[in-house]
Design a protein around this nucleic acid. Structure first.
Lengths: 112, 112
DNA sequence: GTATTATGCCTTGAACTTCGAGGTATAAGG
DNA sequence: CCTTATACCTCGAAGTTCAAGGCATAATAC
């Protein structure tokens, strides 16, 4: 009964993928499980989201990939490039700013 | 130089609109400014977003509207219904769960 | 007197994401 | 054999946000 994450997911997959890849290189299938696990099973990215994001990030130079054969199965490992690190920093900042701003509105801040 | 809010806005307008309307009834134009102000000018919803959301929420029974004439100008005030309050609660919870989960991933949580 | 700004409502099309389902293939286990 | 787990991928539907623009009244500026 894994509920999907509705409503607030825009841009989140890209942010989390970059963050996790900053720590070590991983392949798509692994990312899905790692993010699910580390989020306390709250976030389920799904392969239909991971692979397009991965390809887009590689195309834009944020990630570099290498194919590896493991037990006859083929894996594509992705690693952060310097551009990817910069992109992560930007996304991370804009996420922080947004979630802070939302907290302000939700707690009924008096004025700016 | 009003920057737009990119990447992480999915579902946020609806959440904030419901939250602000829980405190008092308001009209569309006013909501845009109130949210912008209370967010510390970080969030700019835009009329092209506010009106469709307002109409959708009314159609689904979360809001009730009434027209008011003020100085010859016509305003449409929106107020939260009980259904709207329930919807707000649900959205607010799912926002909290998501932002907590993201924080877990971003801070490199050990495991579930 | 007329032009511009501020108020206030609204719609439209493009662009982007996520989602869900499905397709391919190898390896292991019952 | 047949199902499950691993691992890659694509596609179409659905839903949002965004930018731009249109309409109308009132107040201010020139």
């Amino acid at each position: 009964m894994a509920d999907s994450n509705p409503h607030f997911m825009n841009g989140v997959p890209e942010l989390l993928i970059l963050q996790v890849l900053r720590e070590r290189e991983m392949y798509g299938y692994e990312l899905v499980e790692e993010i699910h696990r580390r989020s306390g099973t709250v976030i389920s990215i799904g392969e239909g989201v991971v692979y397009p994001v991965l390809h887009g990030l590689e195309r834009s130079g944020a990630l570099a990939s290498r194919r590896v054969k493991v037990n006859g199965r083929s894996r594509v490992y992705y690693a952060l490039t310097p551009q990817g690190a910069a992109r992560l920093e930007g996304l991370s900042d804009s996420w922080s700013r947004l979630s802070d701003a939302i907290r302000l509105v939700m707690t009924g801040a008096a004025h700016a």
